[in-house]
């Protein structure tokens, strides 16, 4: 990864800049607290790769809103590789880390955090993974970008930006922690780039 280096020139349109992403996350954090009537029961689970830093950023904001919220005790990551329905159609995927807060997720309000919501299949896998890990009081979904084209009856509770796209386009979320900059980029409008299958 080009950590700290300037990002390589991207052929595409930047639809969200660093400030837009910060504002969207701040708004989502407030919506989470409002919906859960406080942040006490909230557990944030980031879906690798880019859901993990997004969940960390949301946790910092929740702590700023509600002083009783402990980011260390309410933050985790959830790898869904072994629950995917497309394993057999792709080359073998590397399994990521699943890490839950020490207190577990039973009875809590779990907020799944992902970067782009597309077909909904990743979230379907995440829901199955959660049911094997415990029984939360509720599961909610936060995503930075909802690009449509759902293939399953799944909808987000908290959205950074709704981004109408064609299925041939490629939506890329770039985050400072991983890519060295904050941006949401759409590319492949001509249908050259098939886009990441999600």
């Amino acid at each position: 990864m080009n950590f700290g280096l300037p990002a390589e020139p991207e052929l595409g349109t930047t639809v969200l800049g660093p400030d837009d992403i910060q504002r969207a996350l701040t708004r989502i954090a407030h919506e989470i607290v409002e919906r859960a009537k406080g942040a006490a029961d909230v557990v944030l689970l980031g879906v690798p790769t880019r859901g993990v830093p997004l969940a960390q950023r949301l946790a910092q904001r929740l702590a700023a809103i509600d002083a009783g919220f402990d980011p260390a005790a309410a933050l985790g990551e959830l790898d869904v590789t072994m629950y995917r329905d497309d394993l057999h159609r792709n080359p073998t995927r590397t399994i990521g880390v699943t890490r839950l807060p020490a207190s577990g997720i039973d009875g809590r309000v779990v907020v799944l955090v992902d970067d782009v919501l597309f077909s909904g299949r990743t979230i379907r896998a995440a829901l199955d993974a959660i049911s094997d890990l415990g029984r939360p009081r509720a599961v909610r979904l936060a995503c930075l970008v909802d690009r449509g084209h759902r293939e399953l009856p799944i909808r987000p509770d908290f959205v950074g930006k709704n981004l109408p796209t064609s299925a041939a386009e490629h939506v890329q979320v770039r985050l400072a922690e991983i890519d060295g900059e904050d941006a949401v980029v759409i590319s492949g409008r001509g249908g050259v780039d098939a886009g990441e299958e999600r």
Partner: peptide, 16 residues
């Protein structure tokens, strides 16, 4: 078993 069996049979990526 995961690395040998989970990937697609046609996909030439079972890199074990």
């Amino acid at each position: 078993l995961y690395l040998l069996l989970a990937g697609g049979s046609s996909a030439e990526g079972t890199s074990l």
